[in-house]
């Protein structure tokens, strides 16, 4: 009853809104489907990880800055990982080449450090377009209000601050992240009445 109560709305949300992510590289042989939406874009992204060190994927997106649709061929590489008994730290390189041309692309870095109780991450991305290049950056700090067991519903309450060079303003807001099994959802709502929505399914 409990599981169905959670999964059915998740599938419904996934199906109706298209779909989203946390870790940019999965385990070896793993696939991931994500949906992402914020004030800059709405996208669906699929990636496959031949190794836990890198992933290859395709992202279909509606670019809200340029007001057009196109796709990215994406490559993500795990540059560094440090595992301890109580924590994990990661640094990733991210890149993408647009279907509009090789000169429309992006590169970026993503880093995170987490324990079972605390989570921090940052991201930095430079996007080249045919209209105007821009950069995006963000930081996230989070706390797990309780420590669930394997298979439980896990909850994170996060604070996110982000900026893009188009508006040149920092925007900060709370984010709720929930995951259970292979599903994850992350939702944030900022003062400008904009939703950040991430959904992810890993298989």
């Amino acid at each position: 009853m409990g599981i169905r109560f959670f999964i059915l709305p998740a599938i419904l949300t996934f199906a109706l809104t298209t779909a989203l992510s946390a870790r940019p590289v999965s385990y070896t042989g793993g696939s991931t489907v994500m949906y992402f939406s914020d004030e800059l874009k709405e996208s669906v992204y699929y990636h496959y990880s031949p190794s836990y060190r890198y992933s290859l994927g395709l992202e279909w997106l509606k670019d809200k800055v340029q007001n057009k649709n196109y796709a990215y061929l994406r490559y993500t590489h795990l540059l560094n990982r440090k595992n301890t008994q109580t924590s994990q730290r990661n640094l990733y390189f991210q890149s993408g080449i647009s279907s509009e041309g090789i000169d429309r692309n992006f590169i970026g870095l993503h880093g995170d450090w987490e324990t079972r109780r605390l989570f921090t991450s940052f991201g930095l991305k430079h996007v080249q377009t045919d209209v105007k290049d821009y950069t995006e950056e963000y930081i996230q700090l989070g706390l797990a209000p309780y420590l669930g067991d394997y298979g439980d519903l896990h909850t994170w309450i996060l604070f996110k601050a982000k900026r893009n060079s188009l508006t040149n303003e920092w925007n900060s807001y709370p984010v709720l992240k929930l995951f259970k099994g292979n599903f994850m959802v992350e939702l944030g709502y900022d003062e400008n009445d904009e939703w950040d929505a991430h959904l992810m399914y890993r298989f």
């Binding site: 949300t13 309780y146 669930g148």
Partner: peptide, 26 residues
């Protein structure tokens, strides 16, 4: 519509989070 969908999704999830916390504490 988006807000309604998200609310529909979030409410049961938050209820479950509380339920898991009680079970875990026990």
């Amino acid at each position: 519509m988006k807000r309604i969908l998200i609310s529909v999704f979030l409410l049961p999830s938050l209820a479950l989070a509380g339920e898991h916390q009680m079970k875990h504490d026990k």
